[in-house]
Design a protein around this nucleic acid. Structure first.
Lengths: 205, 205
DNA sequence: GTCTATACAGCGATAGAC
DNA sequence: GTCTATCGCTGTATAGAC
């Protein structure tokens, strides 16, 4: 971290501290002190706290864009799981935006819209995945279409909120735990042989 | 609201404002001003903001205790749904504790433990429900026991986080929406005839 | 119980020297 | 770029009069 510019150091340290102690508790003074620079210096690089948050947010969006997309790959459990897990990893890196969503959105309402757009985009991806599974006859036939469409809602619900849930659990659950949690959701929708395939994969992963 | 004592008015108004604008944005000044009393007066009744939060929290716990429990009733879709829905109603009344959990817990770590205990208790109830359904052969037989046990985790996950999820969705989803969401989760676990029974009930509810 | 007045700390943000 | 110094505001909390 020492070869970073001051501007970069500030961003990195801010994310660290926001994640750990919350936006409302971390001030520009705290960040500056932790880095051993003056508050005036910090304000030279970022005129205010909101601007730090905005930059962090767009860094997160960038990270999502760079991450592996499902679209270009075969729909094996490995690929699907890996793709979701990499999304969870990014979310965890920027967890302040998901654990303190209401706080952030009140400060910066524009970020709410952007995050909703991101989730909508993820939902589209998931719907494509569900449709592909449906086309290939991998879902049980005795489940109604509305129920299968609901599966996408459940996925998005879980993706949006797992970092909140994490704080409720008594044990310290990891990214892996919630990645698997996500796919346990859709197990009962699958045909017997597909279910076993996934069960086998999740045990190993 | 006018026949309430000042002390009660403060509590009611605080909950209203915390729910609406967040704990971090509402100060004792705001609450006092909204009620048309002085800040000094407010501090006569409640020495500080945390004490208001603590009282609100124990009011919520009281509400949960008074609410209908599943235990004493027949396990019809009507009763199960109604019981869950009444829990959701209380959660919604005190949504600040679920939408700003991290903020609250950093202020008052003891509340985290208490909320975890509450959720654990709810989980016990749900496990009883699941076991009863299992005993009566209402679940599909081709679903593994670990997967059925997971159902309880899914329920608790959803209960703990639906108020966070609510803020992500573009439409303004209600308590009813999420009550139904909850039971759509367990539909694919059910035998055909049970599934249809629930499907029929959820359409009407 | 309720008021006014005030102490005090911490915040974001700016100005100006180096 | 980085520093020190400082302003203005807002927050919690207390003191003392009525």
């Amino acid at each position: 971290m020492n070869q970073l510019s001051t501007k970069e150091k500030i961003i990195a340290q801010s994310l660290l501290m926001f994640n750990q102690k919350g936006v409302e508790n971390i001030t520009t003074r705290h960040i500056a002190k932790e880095l051993g620079i003056s508050q005036g210096n910090l304000h030279y690089h970022y005129p205010n706290k909101n601007e730090i948050l905005e930059l962090l947010f767009s860094n997160m969006i960038e990270a999502f864009k760079k991450a592996e997309s499902l679209k270009s790959r075969a729909l094996s459990p490995e690929n699907i799981f890996y793709s979701m897990r990499s999304n969870f990893k990014i979310m965890h890196d920027y967890r302040v935006f998901f654990q303190q969503n209401t706080v952030i959105w009140r400060r910066l309402p524009a970020l709410k819209t952007k995050l909703q757009a991101l989730l909508n985009q993820k939902k589209e991806e998931i719907i494509l995945l569900v449709n592909a599974y449906k086309r290939e006859g991998k879902f049980r036939t005795d489940i109604s279409d509305t129920q299968i469409e609901f599966l996408a809602d459940q996925f998005i619900f879980t993706i949006a909120t797992w970092l909140c849930a994490k704080d409720y659990s008594l044990e310290d659950h990891s990214i892996d735990y919630y990645s698997k949690f996500l796919f346990r959701i859709w197990m009962p929708y699958l045909q017997q042989n597909e279910m076993e395939k996934w069960e086998g994969y999740l045990k190993l992963a």
